[in-house]
Computed example of a mutant assay.
Amino acid sequence: MASSFVGTLLPNHFTQTKHSAVPASRSGAPRRRRVHLATTRAETMTTVIEKLGIKIERNPPESKLTQLGVRQWPKWGCPPSKFPWTYEAKETCYLLEGKVKVFPSGSNESVEIAAGDLVVFPKGMSCTWDVSVGVDKHYNFE
């Protein structure tokens, strides 16, 4: 019975070629079959979530960050802490480091954001930030 090969594409990794044994030929000598998977680079998956008025794009492509000019925006950071905040303007931010639970006022739910997230907070939102891992972020108010 032929052995099977199941390949998995992992972000930023290349697939590999594997040789597998197949049933012996009529002469009794084992035959080898080459199983070749396409050699392609898998891109990191981008996930967009919108919850409680907050839009989160996890793992945005570098091209999007460049297009927005994120690396030119000012930076802000804070240590682990908990504090209230009201957005007087729409804020877009990109977390370089950190982990935060944001609790919008009037809701029993929270939204978690972390390093690698591109986040948009709407103008007028009041919330509480619960920073469990110190934050370092680029930000832009519109």
Rank of each mutant, 00 (worst) to 15 (best):
M1N: 14
M1A: 15
S4I: 12
G7S: 14
G7M: 11
G7E: 15
L9R: 15
P11T: 13
N12S: 11
H13T: 12
H19L: 10
H19E: 12
S20Y: 10
S20N: 09
A21I: 10
A21G: 07
S25W: 08
G28I: 03
G28R: 03
A29L: 09
R34K: 14
V35P: 02
V35T: 10
V35C: 08
V35Q: 10
L37K: 11
A38D: 13
A38E: 11
R41D: 11
A42P: 04
T44A: 10
M45D: 10
M45W: 05
M45A: 14
M45C: 09
T46K: 08
T46N: 09
T47R: 12
E50Q: 13
E50A: 12
K51L: 09
L52K: 01
P60C: 01
S63F: 01
S63E: 15
S63R: 14
L65A: 04
T66M: 05
Q67M: 12
Q67A: 15
L68Y: 01
G69F: 01
V70T: 00
V70C: 00
V70A: 00
V70Q: 00
R71P: 04
Q72V: 04
Q72L: 09
P74L: 07
C78M: 13
C78G: 15
P79E: 14
P79N: 12
S81P: 07
K82R: 15
F83L: 11
W85V: 14
T86I: 11
Y87I: 04
E88I: 07
E88S: 13
K90F: 08
E91K: 06
T92S: 12
T92W: 01
Y94K: 04
L95I: 03
V100Y: 00
K101V: 06
P104A: 02
S105P: 00
S110M: 08
V111Q: 06
E112H: 05
I113V: 15
G116I: 00
V119T: 09
V120D: 09
G124I: 08
G124W: 05
M125H: 03
M125A: 05
T128Q: 08
T128C: 06
W129G: 05
V131N: 05
K137Q: 05
H138K: 04
E142N: 13
